[in-house]
Design a binder for these strands. Structure first.
Lengths: 194, 194
DNA sequence: GTCTATACTAAGATAGAC
DNA sequence: GTCTATCTTAGTATAGAC
């Protein structure tokens, strides 16, 4: 019910948001959340049935925040291919992993309440990419044989895969190389404004 | 030392290999490994100092196996761009995640003995892709402005990112779309054999 | 709504017999 | 080399006072 009030509920969710990004779901315990939030045992189990629901609330907030950032990035006003490039090259903390999709490989993804915010976030990015690329295609800027939907799928995959590369090589440059390559490929499959 | 003998050691490592793919590192306990392997407590701690070293041994074997598959895929004999396409379109169990890189977002990746097999695997793929693309470039098959190294980084990122997309959407098709897009993009930035 | 105290199970590792 | 028994701490949740 109440989305406001209860300072401890907010503190708990805020702590969960931080810990889910830092450590993921499995590796975050209710004790960790309580310690970081300054709340006592009772507060958590008063506001939530258990750990899963705390995480679901935290992920929902994170998705909402990040989707707002995406929507701002893709707002009309700049040319469509510039929006795509702006998304690709936005600043990222590669070694921390994607704030939401870092949970992709946890068993928690089989739980819809946890998976859905993550899916909504990456799905929204892919939708925005596709819409921009369709706009570019309509303006005759895409090489024939390059479908906007396929290219959008490639680009979101490159970004999420770039995080993976950075983590396994423990080197931000591994992600940069993939992103730079994607920008080059994007340039190769588009043509300058007529 | 001994790489042979001790049936229980092998059973323990085999069980760890299966569990690491299924559940990841954090979510796999020594008890799970013992239960699946049929070994007792003492066997594990006789052969290994602890959980981390079991996982390191398992990951080393997994990397060795998977690198052998990659090397076979990229063996000379077929034209370079066919090798690249064969890698992209090889059969995968998208929802299970990458056998090695599924660990990318675990805290365990800060441990070199666990990270290195994973990095060696994805690094080898990227090297094979780059070598094939350089060969294609030398044959004049790459569009100008497309660097082999950048394209190789894009393609490994698409595959690893494709696994992420499949998991978060809980849908194999999400990965297929990214892979199909990559094949199309590859077609668009190359030209038919002269 | 919030707290402390408590309970129960699992994680990870050790001890010591065979 | 392998086993069972044991130990210690953390994960997750409940009870009940304030």
């Amino acid at each position: 019910m109440a989305r406001q009030g209860s300072s401890k509920r907010e503190a708990i969710v805020a702590a969960a948001k931080a810990l889910l990004w830092e450590r993921g779901y499995e590796a975050t315990s209710p004790r960790d959340v309580l310690a970081r939030s300054g709340a006592g045992q009772g507060s958590l189990y008063h506001h939530f049935p258990g750990k899963r629901e705390v995480a679901a609330a935290a992920l929902a907030e994170m998705a909402e925040e990040e989707i707002a950032v995406i929507d701002a990035l893709f707002a009309p006003g700049t040319p469509p291919l510039d929006r795509v490039r702006a998304y690709l090259t936005r600043e990222r903390q590669a070694l921390r992993g994607c704030r939401l999709a870092r949970l992709a490989n946890e068993a928690a993804m089989e739980e819809p309440s946890l998976r859905e915010p993550v899916a909504a976030y990456v799905g929204r990015i892919q939708d925005c990419l596709r819409a921009s690329l369709e706009e570019a295609e309509a303006a005759g800027r895409l090489l024939p044989g390059v479908a906007p939907a396929g290219l959008a799928a490639v680009l979101i995959a490159v970004v999420e895969g770039g995080y993976v590369l950075a983590r396994v090589h423990w080197d931000e440059a591994a992600m940069r190389e993939a992103i730079d390559g994607a920008v080059q490929v994007l340039g190769a499959v588009t043509r300058p404004q007529a």
